[in-house]
C-alpha cells in the first residue's frame, strides 16, 4: 500500500487510472501541491518570460505600427498618437520597401536552396568517408558554423576587400582569356565588391552559405547513419543508380529531417541582419537594405520613426509566418508532439 502511494507521487506521469485517489497520502515533500498542479507550476516561470518578453511585445508592435512614435513619445513627453493605416501606406509607397522586400525574398530563396543542396551533398559525402576522414572534415565545417555572425561579416568583408582582399588576388590568377570569357574582364585589382547592392548580396550569399551548410551537412549525416545499410545493399543488388537510390530511399526516409532543415534555414535566412550590417558598414546603402535592416533604420536612425519601423516589422513577421505555416502544420501533424 505504501508503495503504491509512493508511485502515485509521480503525478500525471503514470497513466494508470485510479492511482490518483492515493494522492492525499503524499509525503511531506509534495505538501500542498496536487500532482495535477505540478506541471503548471514548473511551466509558469518560463511561460511568464515568453509572455512578457515575446508575446506581449508582439502585441505592442502591432499597436505601435498604427501610431506615430517619435522622439517626444520615446521620452514620454507626449502620448503616442493614433495614425490608422498611415504608417502602412507610407511604407508601401516607399520604393525602398519594395527593393528591401525583393532583396529579402530573393536572398532567402537562393541561399536556402544553395545551403540545402551543398549541405546534403556534403552530408552524403561524409557518410561515405572513412571514420577518421569524416571526423576531420566535420571538425573543419563545425568551426565555420561556430564563427559568430559579426565575425563572419568581418571575415568576408576582408576577403572581398577591394585593395588587399584575397578574392581579387585569386580572380587575377585566372588566365586572362578565361576570366574575359566568364566575366568579360581580366583585371580585378581594386574591384569594390561592397559598394553596389547586387555584389553586396553576392558576398552575403557566399558568407551565409559558408556558415550554414555545415549544420545541414551534419544533420543529414546523422539522418543517414540511421538508415539501415541493407536497404542500400538491396537497391544496389537490384542495379539502382546512385541518383535513383537517393530519390527512392534516402530522400523519403530523411523527409522529416529535410523539412525541419528547410524551415530552420528559411527562418535564419529571412532575418539575416548581423552579416549584412557588417558587410554594408551599418544601415547606409539603402538599395541593399533587406526588411530587417529597413525596419531597424526607420526606427532607430534619426529622426526615429518607430511607427513606420513597426509597420515594416509586422509585414516581415506576417511573411515569415505565412511561409513557415505550411511547415509548422506539417510538424504538428506528422510528429504528434509527444
Amino acid at each position: 500500500m505504501t508503495n503504491t502511494s509512493t508511485v502515485a507521487r509521480g503525478g500525471g506521469a503514470s497513466p494508470a487510472p485510479g492511482r490518483r485517489r492515493h494522492a492525499p497520502q503524499r509525503p511531506a515533500k509534495a505538501r500542498g501541491l496536487s500532482p495535477r498542479a505540478v506541471p503548471y507550476v514548473l511551466l509558469a516561470p518560463g511561460l511568464l518570460v515568453i509572455a512578457g518578453l515575446l508575446l506581449y511585445p508582439l502585441g505592442q508592435m502591432i499597436v505601435i505600427s498604427f501610431q506615430k512614435v517619435g522622439i517626444p513619445q520615446i521620452n514620454g513627453k507626449k502620448p503616442a498618437t493614433w495614425e490608422g493605416w498611415d504608417n502602412y501606406t507610407r511604407v508601401l509607397d516607399n520604393e525602398i520597401f519594395w527593393s528591401s522586400l525583393r532583396n529579402t525574398l530573393v536572398f532567402a530563396a537562393v541561399t536556402v536552396a544553395l545551403t540545402l543542396v551543398l549541405g546534403t551533398a556534403v552530408g552524403t559525402l561524409l557518410n561515405r568517408l572513412s571514420k577518421k576522414m569524416s571526423t576531420f572534415v566535420v571538425i573543419g565545417i563545425m568551426s565555420a558554423w561556430a564563427v559568430p555572425p559579426v565575425a563572419q561579416g568581418v571575415i568576408w568583408r576582408w576577403l572581398f576587400d577591394a585593395d588587399a582582399g584575397m578574392i581579387n588576388w585569386a580572380l587575377n590568377l585566372l588566365p586572362d582569356g578565361l576570366s574575359e570569357l566568364l566575366f568579360g574582364r581580366s583585371d580585378w585589382t581594386g574591384e569594390p565588391w561592397l559598394n553596389d547592392a547586387f555584389t553586396i548580396y553576392l558576398v552575403l550569399i557566399v558568407c551565409v552559405l559558408w556558415s550554414s551548410f555545415p549544420f545541414v551537412a551534419v544533420s543529414v549525416l546523422a539522418g543517414l547513419k540511421g538508415i539501415p545499410a541493407e536497404l542500400y545493399e538491396a537497391a544496389r543488388v537490384d542495379g539502382a543508380t546512385p541518383w535513383r537510390i537517393f530519390r527512392k530511399i534516402t530522400f523519403p526516409l530523411l523527409k522529416p529531417v529535410f523539412s525541419v532543415l528547410t524551415i530552420l534555414s528559411i527562418i535564419w535566412d529571412f532575418k539575416v541582419f548581423s552579416q549584412l550590417y557588417v558587410l554594408m558598414g551599418g544601415p547606409t546603402n539603402r538599395e541593399a537594405f533587406n526588411l530587417s535592416i529597413f525596419s531597424f533604420a526607420e526606427a532607430f536612425r534619426s529622426p526615429p520613426k518607430m511607427g513606420v519601423g513597426a509597420a515594416i516589422a509586422v509585414i516581415l513577421t506576417l511573411i515569415l509566418l505565412v511561409v513557415t505555416a505550411v511547415y509548422i502544420r506539417q510538424i504538428v501533424k506528422t510528429e504528434d508532439l509527444r
Binding site: 508575446l55 508592435m61 526606427a299 532607430f300 518607430m306 519601423g309 516581415l316 513577421t317 509548422i328
Partner: peptide, 22 residues
C-alpha cells in the same frame, strides 16, 4: 504550449526590437 514554442521561434527579433526598446 508546444505549438506556442514553435510559433514564437518564428518571430523575428527585429519585430520585438521597437517594443522591447521602449
Amino acid at each position: 504550449f508546444l505549438i506556442l514554442l514553435l510559433i514564437v521561434q518564428m518571430i523575428p527579433a527585429e519585430a520585438l526590437l521597437i517594443p522591447l526598446f521602449l
